[in-house]
Write a protein that binds this DNA or RNA. Structure first.
Lengths: 335, 335
DNA sequence: AGCGTCTCTGTTAACGCTAACAAAAATTGG
DNA sequence: CCAATTTTTGTTAGCGTTAACAGAGACGCT
């Protein structure tokens, strides 16, 4: 159906040169006379010529596309990451192809990766926060540039990650500094590395203050599960401080506490994680930890590009430190 | 650098057939002997062969990729839409390439579309909620399959859209039915069609109840702007019911009302739009309008695919009706 | 002038696939 | 069993680009 646009030879004919010269102009090859370059550019503009990415990809063996594999791009974290990744990639002249997967199991991930590979993407970014994803990656062709985000720290794969441990430690310490005797934790799903890291950080902060960590309450990132945990926390008189693994969990906790008439922050302090834009408008405004998604995106892309260019697949690692954002949901405990 | 994987001829050699037969097996061509088909499949599996999308795209003139142009994929609506679109596309064997743009102006949109075109995408979905986007689309090559989502209803372009008017009318009517004398509105940015439609629906509901609409208060989708509007609403004793253009605005309003000691829903009822997963955990749980993003995604993709297959570019239109979700943020006014 | 050395441009051959046609093999009907 | 048909397979020619090499001028040096 489609009326195919002009090809390189058409431009060449109009400019009175060979198609190869056009190619050189397009790729910024140095040895082209200024006058020729201008003629070619004029011809390109006149015809509205657009280079054919498929042909280029065929001959070079690589397209200017980066594949991203992610689960649940509706969550704030992944969505932000994806958006930032796309922005950064666009600046480098790369398009981003998304392969979202329903489950982060072997088969789904492999299938998504396969799809990307058959399009000959230049590289792949896997937002792979769970254990099972790691295995799928190990059996990947070794020559495909790959970066994982928030993936398994124990695997020999290039990894960019938010420093979950440091963030959780800061959150917990912030509560301890306010005078709380201990801090409870509503965690994310325990097969997510993010969750594990945040649990670790929380535990570390308590231990180095000489405190015995209470059992963490497992949630699943959703406000709904936060609410369920909150209902239990509200019934426990000794609880004065809660650190939740993300802001949505915190929202659910806040709501449960409110229902039970437990005042935040006067009776119970709450700290979240992620700093979703709405966190400042929770009741009360939520103290939380803000990961720098832009920085993560930039770091991953840079790591990926350096692999693409160099052809080496070194197992680098980069960690982005998050920042605590203090708001009104934390106060000293009532005595 | 990359060790190129096996090509079709390698498979053919191993299976003892010509590469064309392999191609036929791959494309499900009927006239292949069962026995041959099996031999070829075995060879494909043995070599781990993966068809080269670029080569296919080159010769057919179309890749199995759909380009999506969207702004701010961090917002809940666009993010959900994108995720749903990707899911649906994957089921049809298409990959989705995102081109997010910072601003929805001419130049940005055109640039994103250009990028997609040079990759020879099979079709383009534009999530183009603002006026300026429409213009950019008119000058697009006519032979590119195109669908707009939440775009300009007055342009002759295939369009899938949530029925903003009906949703807003339902929300407003719900408040009137509860006994409120009038309903105030915190709108989205007025250059978004979504906002305009929601304002329209709200106004229609009031007018057909014989009421004079109060001036709408302009917000920008964010909780922050909802908060600012809420601070004004809280000071106006006659306000008993507010319909906000999305849930985040509602959150800001709820927070402002809470700060001023105005009880929701006893003094003021609030209704939002979008039904973000957290809305059920606001304080109080938010009555809102739920657009069916999956349905929108399915409809858009179907529309796009039919254009791709038929080659015709008809200007269809499809409207998805949203549903009211009643929760606790609405009550009859105090008398 | 003659010759090597740059700079610039052109020619040719892939890249891996599908489409169109050609040939071979299998099937059918008489 | 042979011709006519149908099914199955093979051959060839691109698709639009880049890479590799080759050629043509321009320039500087002996």
């Amino acid at each position: 159906m489609a009326v195919h646009g002009p090809a390189m030879t058409d431009v060449a004919r109009l400019a009175g040169v060979s198609h190869q010269t056009v190619s050189r102009v397009l790729n910024g090859h140095p040895n082209v006379r200024e006058q020729t370059r201008l003629r070619v550019r004029a011809a390109i503009a006149e015809l509205g010529y657009r280079p054919n990415g498929a042909a280029r990809a065929l001959v070079t063996g690589r397209s200017q596309v980066i594949g991203v594999v992610a689960q649940n791009t509706t969550l704030y974290g992944p969505a932000s990451l994806l958006a930032a990744l796309e922005q950064t990639a666009a600046e480098e002249g790369f398009a981003v192809s998304v392969g979202s997967v329903r489950n982060l199991d072997h088969r789904s991930i492999s299938a998504a990766v396969e799809r990307h590979l058959s399009h000959r993407v230049a590289g792949i970014v896997v937002i792979a926060p769970v254990e099972s994803a790691g295995e799928a990656l190990e059996r990947l062709p070794k020559d495909v540039p790959l970066v994982t985000v928030d993936g398994d720290p124990s695997r020999p794969v290039p990894l960019v990650t938010v420093d979950q441990v440091a963030g959780a430690r800061a959150a917990t310490q912030h509560l301890l500094d306010a005078g709380h005797r201990t801090v409870w934790h509503v965690s994310g799903p325990t097969d997510w590395f993010d969750s594990v890291g945040r649990i670790d950080g929380w535990r570390q902060a308590l231990l180095s203050a000489g405190l015995e960590p209470p059992p963490p309450m497992p949630g699943d990132w959703s406000a709904a599960s936060g609410y369920r945990c909150g209902q239990m926390l509200a019934r426990m008189p000794e609880v004065t401080a809660v650190f939740t693994a993300n802001d949505h969990l915190a929202l659910g906790v806040l709501r449960a506490l409110h229902e039970f008439g437990r005042q935040v922050p006067h009776e119970i302090s709450v700290v979240g994680f992620d700093d979703v834009p709405e966190a400042a408008y929770f009741i009360p405004p939520l103290t939380t930890v803000r990961p720098d998604f832009d920085a993560v995106a930039r770091a991953s892309l840079q790591m990926l590009l350096s692999q693409i260019e160099s052809g080496t697949g070194g197992a680098l690692r980069q960690t982005i430190a998050p920042a605590l954002v203090a708001r009104e949901s934390v106060a000293p405990p009532r005595r």
